[in-house]
Design a protein around this nucleic acid. Structure first.
Lengths: 239, 239
DNA sequence: TCTCCCAATATCCTATAGGAAAGATGTTTG
DNA sequence: CAAACATCTTTCCTATAGGATATTGGGAGA
């Protein structure tokens, strides 16, 4: 047709505007650096720091409020949300049981598509878990970057199951839960030494999915989450 | 003490800022009036109509985008979200099955608190359902206000169960589902003639909860949602 | 008659300024 | 010395203006 060739095939500029950039920046800031709950999140200050106008910051904070990471009091501004206390912790696990067991059963319907990805993820988790174990055995300081990577892979296993349901509504809800689980990790700050257990339990879920047995997979997921809950209880009690 | 008397006891000014007012106004507008999908929601136009500045309108739209009622394309503005098509309809019912069956089982743990409220709601639904039936038997025009009221009570039954879980996370998710179910009603636009069925099925759920039998209650809820799904399928097929 | 290009309009996005409320600090008074 | 008041600062909330971008319509050329 024309003599101009387009070398930007998949490179859609992904026009997302400033709002989403600011959102991701603040989200990352809240997730990574351990910022004290109750800290004020001043719109103007953030806008100055990021060299943007307050408007996109406002929009990003509205979006963040919906996730529960920040709280807002009218005419008083935004603050970092308080951590998850023990009562909410039990409720969070209950919600996870409801959502994830149901999702696992649904994902079993598309097992053929899901199993390969889960396999790769579990293998990566096994490697990282071993690294974590060795790092702790060496007794050195907590390798935060390594832990962050491990937790990411751990959650990716659960996330892939949600994707496996091919259900956009459940996927949306998994996003909400994901952030809350991450926040829980900040308060419980354990779930580290149990890496071998988690790998084994994930393996049981994966085996059931490989067999296409939805009920067994859901049961394995229930078992896994209950065990994580038990370990979390132990951590909070010991704290 | 002082001679000034304060006659504004419960009249807390309810400081919520313009943002929430605008949000509720737009939400109501979208829920009630059947506005065509794809309609542009111009920030400036809405701001002019509501006699406020564009900023609170922007915030309200960000919040609405998160609910799925409106879509946003960067630099192109907001639009009314497209309706739920049949593929999403099946997925929506799957998600409801996962969420509501799990919630019912959890709510059985607080049956004593929940049953009275459910009883009152079901009684109201029975009355309204009868009114609806008579209105349709008379063959007159569709009594939209009456239908709106009936649907509200119908959903309140489900909502009370979510509240009965005493689980803030599940309650949050029920809000998301609620809006989507409402939107589904706009596309399926039936679920009217089945009022007697719905009342009966709700009654079965309530009976199981009264007995404190969580498993039976969850099974009754599953049965109910599956039947609603079947009726919705029938509607879309007939359309 | 169809296609392509260009300009005009409407809208979104960003930036800046002013009014209002909440919290903090210093002062005054019992 | 303590408590209450006044004032000040900070921040949020709202409003308005300007630059950038997408859509629409018309006109020229093939």
């Amino acid at each position: 047709m024309s003599e101009t060739v387009y070398p930007l095939a998949g490179h859609t500029p992904q026009r997302k505007g400033l709002r989403d950039s600011v959102y991701e920046l603040i989200l990352n800031m809240l997730m990574t650096s351990d910022i004290a709950p109750g800290t004020r999140l001043s719109i103007d200050v953030i806008a100055r720091d990021l060299k943007v106008s307050p408007t996109p910051v406002r929009e990003a904070l509205v979006q963040l409020e919906r996730t529960g990471l920040v709280t807002r009091e009218a005419l008083k501004g935004y603050r970092v949300a308080p951590p998850i206390h023990s009562g909410q912790l039990e409720a969070l696990f209950d919600a996870r049981l409801v959502l994830e067991c149901g999702a696992t059963e649904l994902a079993a319907g598309h097992a053929a598509d899901v199993v390969p990805e889960l396999d790769a993820t579990l293998e990566k988790q096994r490697e990282l878990g071993e690294k974590v174990r060795r790092a702790f055995a060496a007794g050195g300081p907590a390798p935060v970057d390594l832990l962050r990577e491990y937790f990411a892979v751990d959650w990716q296993f659960h996330h892939l199951i949600f994707e496996g349901t091919r259900n956009p509504f459940l996927l949306d809800m998994s996003e909400d839960i994901s952030i809350r689980v991450h926040r829980m990790r900040q308060t419980v700050n354990a779930g580290v030494t149990d890496a071998p257990d988690a790998v084994i339990e994930h393996g049981l879920i994966l085996d059931a999915l490989r067999n296409g047995d939805g009920d067994a997979a859901a049961a394995a997921m229930r078992d896994h989450i209950e065990k994580v809950r038990e370990r979390a209880r132990h951590d909070t009690a010991a704290r």
